[in-house]
């Protein structure tokens, strides 16, 4: 095991596997978010279930561990990569074959971490530890997550930041998904284009799916 984690290829496997785990998490997160469109009762019920179900709560530490592993190992590798090329070229004119996102995964990752800090302090941390208005649905008293979210989504600066962050997340995923599959060895000359297309499609669905909600609620707030 020490040989595995001591090798760059092993560390990359950790980044790839944790990345794919986060890719699955984002699907769940997006589905939950989309229930906002079904109205306060549905969203609050789902949010209440997510906040009380033992299986979901049990997954939280796993999620945090996956995220921290992904961040820590990527950062370690990025720093060692910088050391591998101490002097830059005077002129660089790459042939293509590499995307902007693939060359800037570290910067994209840092931007996503910064957004994540704002995002968690706005929602998850407040829902778990902060004081949130209560609402009664079908005789059950629960936190009014819908009001918390829609209030945030009526702020122009938050919606703007959120939308930009989703574009950056989309770029990170457009390379990240296919890169993770390549890292765990699931690639050859036949699957390459398929994985690239799948990764791109996933990135677009996730970025648009997440970004559309704050924009929708912001427009709705302006019209009312």
């Amino acid at each position: 095991m020490s040989t595995f984690l001591g090798a760059s290829v092993g560390r990359k496997l950790v980044v790839g596997i944790s990345g794919l785990f986060l890719v699955l998490f984002l699907v769940v997160h997006l589905v939950v978010n989309l229930t906002l469109l079904a109205g306060p009762e549905t969203y609050n019920t789902v949010a209440h279930w997510m906040g009380t179900n033992p299986a979901v709560l049990g997954m939280r530490p796993v999620l945090v561990l996956g995220l921290l592993l992904h961040i820590a190992v990527s950062m370690y590798l990025s720093v060692s990569n910088l050391r591998a090329r101490p002097r830059r070229y005077l002129k660089v004119d790459p042939a293509g074959g590499s995307t902007w996102a693939s060359r800037n995964m570290f910067i994209l990752g840092v931007c996503i971490i910064l957004f994540l800090a704002l995002h968690l302090s706005s929602f998850s941390i407040r829902m778990t530890f902060g004081s949130v208005d209560m609402v009664e649905i079908s005789g059950v008293l629960m936190k009014d997550a819908y009001a918390l979210v829609t209030t945030r989504f009526s702020l122009w600066w938050y919606v703007s930041l959120y939308s930009v962050a989703m574009v950056l997340l989309g770029l990170h995923l457009a390379h990240g998904v296919q890169s993770s599959l390549q890292t765990i060895g699931l690639n050859d000359h036949r699957w390459r284009e398929r994985w690239a297309s799948l990764g791109l499609a996933y990135a677009v669905v996730v970025a648009v799916g997440f970004a559309i909600l704050p924009i929708y609620f912001f427009v709705q707030a302006q019209m009312s």
Binding site: V9, R11, S102, H175
Partner: peptide, 22 residues
């Protein structure tokens, strides 16, 4: 071979694809 590559100080692969293009 991977251990020697790391020991020598080469960077880690980011599946960027620049190597293949060049």
């Amino acid at each position: 071979m991977v251990a020697k590559m790391d020991e020598l100080g080469f960077g880690a692969c980011g599946n960027i694809g620049a190597c293949e293009a060049e």
